[in-house]
Simulated scan of single mutants.
Amino acid sequence: MTTLLLNLRQVPDDEAEDVRHLLEQHQIPFYETTPSLWGISSGGIWLNNPEDRERARALMEDYQQQRARQQREAFEQARRDGTAPTLWQRLRHQPLRALGVLIAVLVLLLVTLAPFLALGKGG
């Protein structure tokens, strides 16, 4: 039975490539599924043999700890250099996404508070 090792949803290309290389380097057979056209499934890296699951998970845990450490160091360096993106820069870079999130939050607040607002008018 195959085992999903890595769901590729929101995984950067360089990280997916590192995982492929890691599995090949340790001679762990795997295959990859691609994301669906409509975004329903995100694709993944799957192990062929269930016997490789524990070894692959141990390798992934080590890799993810190392990657997290490297990414934190890179972010801290960018922050010291003043090149780390600020919230305002991110909002300006993706204005439609920011607007969509704002609208979704407002709708959720309205739906959540509507019953309480209706109670005050019932009298």
Rank of each mutant, 00 (worst) to 15 (best):
Y31A: 06
Q27C: 04
V101C: 05
T2C: 04
Y63Q: 03
V111H: 05
E17N: 09
Q65L: 08
L22A: 10
R20V: 06
E17Q: 11
V111N: 08
L119C: 06
E15Q: 07
L102T: 03
R55N: 11
L109M: 08
L37D: 13
L47E: 00
M60D: 11
L23A: 04
P12Y: 11
F116D: 01
E24H: 06
W46E: 07
I28S: 06
Q66C: 09
T83P: 02
L102P: 02
T34V: 05
R67E: 14
E54P: 01
T83N: 02
P50S: 14
L110E: 00
E54F: 01
M1R: 14
R9P: 00
Q94N: 15
A56L: 06
A84K: 03
S41M: 06
T34S: 08
E51D: 15
A78I: 08
Q64D: 05
L47W: 01
R72K: 10
Q65T: 08
T112A: 13
S41E: 09
E76L: 13
L102Y: 13
V19S: 03
P50A: 14
A118C: 01
Q66E: 12
L102K: 05
T86N: 09
G39Q: 00
R79P: 05
L119T: 13
L4V: 05
S42Q: 03
I45T: 08
Q77H: 06
L87E: 11
A104W: 15
